[in-house]
């Protein structure tokens, strides 16, 4: 007589397993990148900021929200917190951006053996995370300096330097330690790592085109625009309206946190939506 058992929390333990796996690996990846030397020229860093392919590959292989979330948390826990470099609230935005970037990247790939899809996903994960991060950095400078635009040369210089930094990062982290290793690792690990974990490999939808979860990306971008808009309001807008400048002098700029909070909330809602619908229906295929 076969005795069947109600499946007891099987999924939650798979989630926990993926979470811990990605946490540990992206943590150690970050820690090692941290130990390697860097050459810093002001805001421009030449060096490995992370072996970002590790979380990208894992997120492509598992297509799991928990895996995506674990990556930035692993970085926080292993590299930052334990080395005493924890940046406090500033780390928050990184968690949101990286989680979203990785989660969407995982969703984009439909066929793990298709190199074009993997390449697209890897690039997306990096660009999404780093480009928006760059914009947030610029916004911070803007908000942190009184009459930022009025100071001649400064906005241009901040923009120029941040963009150069982004391009360097893109070449080093995005391509050399992101795209190329991802293309090498993803097909090699596929079908090999899953049995070790006791789970089924992700289904390959042969011939399926790259999936662009339009709603997810759209939602993510709306979140960022909302963030940018609100910071514009808090930075520039109030100066035009001449609204209680006295008050602003002392309490004005805390608005920087409003956009970040809003972005966080939007991001969470968007991801939740994406999770429940799994990006079907309205996604377009390219």
């Amino acid at each position: 007589m076969e005795r069947v058992l109600r499946p007891e929390r099987k999924n939650s333990s798979k989630d926990l397993m993926l979470f811990i796996l990605v946490l540990a690996l992206s943590g150690i990846e970050n820690l090692i990148a941290e130990v390697l030397p860097e050459f810093q020229l002001g805001p421009i860093e030449v060096g490995i900021s992370s072996f970002i392919f590790v979380p990208i590959v894992l997120c492509i292989l598992f297509d799991s929200f928990w895996a995506a979330l674990a990556a930035p948390i692993g970085e926080l826990v292993f590299a930052d917190l334990i080395l005493g470099e924890f940046g406090g609230l500033g780390e928050f935005e990184e968690v949101i951006l990286l989680t979203m970037g990785l989660y969407i990247a995982g969703k984009m790939v439909k066929d793990v053996t298709n190199r074009k899809q993997i390449a697209a996903a890897a690039l997306f994960a990096f660009i999404f995370q780093d480009l928006i991060g760059t914009f947030i950095d610029m916004t911070k400078v803007w908000v942190g300096i009184e009459d930022f635009e009025a100071i001649s040369g400064l906005p241009e210089s901040v923009f120029a330097l941040e963009m150069i930094d982004f391009l360097v990062e893109f070449a080093v982290t995005g391509i050399i330690f992101g795209l190329i290793p991802t293309l090498y690792f993803a097909p090699r690990l596929y079908g090999k790592i899953e049995p070790l974990l006791g789970i089924k490999p992700r289904l390959i939808e042969k011939g399926a085109a790259l999936n662009v979860p339009i709603r997810l990306i759209g939602g993510a971008i709306i979140a960022v625009i909302a963030a940018a808009a609100v910071s514009m309001l808090s930075g520039a807008g109030f100066n035009i309206i001449e609204w209680e400048p006295e008050f602003l002098d002392q309490f004005g700029q805390w608005y920087i946190w409003v956009p970040i909070t809003i972005a966080a909330i939007v991001a969470i809602v968007v991801i939740w939506l994406g999770k429940s619908n799994n990006g079907e229906g309205q996604d377009i295929n390219v």
Partner: peptide, 25 residues
């Protein structure tokens, strides 16, 4: 087994007189 590792499970295992299927892990 079988609470955590799924598979085809036949028969009965009693620990301290209680069936393992009737007890959470």
């Amino acid at each position: 087994i079988p609470h955590f590792i799924a598979g085809d499970f036949y028969g009965e295992v009693k620990v301290c007189g209680v069936d393992t299927l009737d007890m959470p892990v």
